[in-house]
């Protein structure tokens, strides 16, 4: 999906979603709470949490929300890729201090849902997402790296 769908949640959040399934309505629990009980289906990871602790449970998780306390804190990019590399197909949401110029990289790391603290300009986002014709690296999205285009 190229452009996001804007969704207003019951909790009053505005989500930008790059998936067309229904928004998961169970509130996310912390990693500690999730590991301490077995039936939660939505988890919130703080920037310092170890995403690998979720790997044994991916089948039961519909939503992982990853927190960005400041836009400078890049740990969430690695957390997202780790989850996607392990086969997680549920909603992966970036929440917090998420800036419009960061969303293209976050998409590449596997995020398909965004809950920015401050609203992002839709026109700017559309432009940024279409800006680079192809990436240099393989990442967690479906985009084809330059070396693959060169060599098949």
């Amino acid at each position: 999906m190229v452009d996001p769908i804007t969704v207003n949640t019951n909790a009053g959040e505005t989500l930008l979603r790059f998936r067309d399934d229904v928004v998961h309505d169970e509130p996310a629990v912390t990693l500690d709470a999730f590991l301490g009980q077995t039936n939660a289906t939505a988890v919130r990871l703080e920037a310092g949490d170890d995403a690998r602790e979720l790997l044994p449970h991916l089948g039961q998780i519909a939503l992982v929300e990853i927190s960005f306390p400041t836009f400078r804190d890049g740990r969430g990019y690695s957390a997202a890729r780790i989850l996607r590399e392990a086969g997680f197909e549920g909603e992966l949401r970036a929440a917090g201090d998420v800036l419009v110029d960061q969303i293209p990289h976050m998409r590449r790391c596997g995020f398909d849902s965004f809950a920015p603290e401050k609203p992002v300009d839709a026109a700017t986002l559309t432009k940024l997402l279409a800006l680079y014709p192809q990436p240099y690296q393989k990442a967690a999205d479906a985009r084809v790296p330059v070396w693959k285009l060169r060599h098949g």
Binding site: G74, Y77, S78, R81, P104, R108, Y136, Q137, V146
Partner: peptide, 14 residues
């Protein structure tokens, strides 16, 4: 150079 250019995961390192 190519690998590191706009690397999506490593743009906000410590």
């Amino acid at each position: 150079r190519q690998w590191s250019t706009f690397h999506p995961e490593f743009t906000y390192l410590p």
